[in-house]
Amino acid sequence: MKQRTIWFILAAVCLAFTLVNAQEMAPIKIDLPKPMFVGTPQNMSVPNLEKPLGKARPPFLAPVGTENVAEGKSVASTDEEPIIGEIDMITDSDKEAADGSYVELGPFLQHVTIDLEKKQNIYAVILWHFHKQPRVYFDVIVQVSDDPDFVKDVKTIFNNDIDNSAGLGVGKDNHYVETSEGKLIDAKGVQGRYVRCYSAGNNNNDLNHYIEVAVYGKPVE
């Protein structure tokens, strides 16, 4: 009888302990925030827009010794008096989107030309127009030539001018959204001394912006 009482008390203690524990394990009631009403979002009305990778771009391979041959080189532009910044900022290695890091050129078709000082084997060009907000620049055309006036022996390595509004031929490349990692253009080892980049406004306004242009290459031996 005494043993039965002890077992009964033990069972009651276990049950009570279980109940207490069960109470401790009860789910916490969370007041979940309700959705916040918002206005019409920003539009990105751009045909032929390529989808971003959604992850970091893998590093590209290039021959040993390839480097940014545009760094610190002189730049000429169709807009000699930019609205904001200086033309030299395009090759100063500063790729930040903050004020003071970009140059703002006038509206409509504008171009900048980088003098690499000598003929280079160019493997890649990376463009940063403006990435503080998602933007798409129109008529982005990149050409390489030995001629500073780009009259003869011009090689086009990128062209997304789908309606030939820039008058340099219809481009087959896609529009793209500007990101902090810049637009990588495969130059396929083309040779030349001058690199010219065109643009004709963006989806937000008619102005043209450049943060940086990097040209990865090696001098032609």
């Binding site: 827009l49 989808k51 998602p134 798409v136 959204v177």
Partner: peptide, 13 residues
């Protein structure tokens, strides 16, 4: 596995 967007140019994960 692939990129998904809420609107053109606006990624959602």
């Amino acid at each position: 596995q692939e990129y998904k967007e809420l609107r053109p140019g606006v990624e959602i994960r």
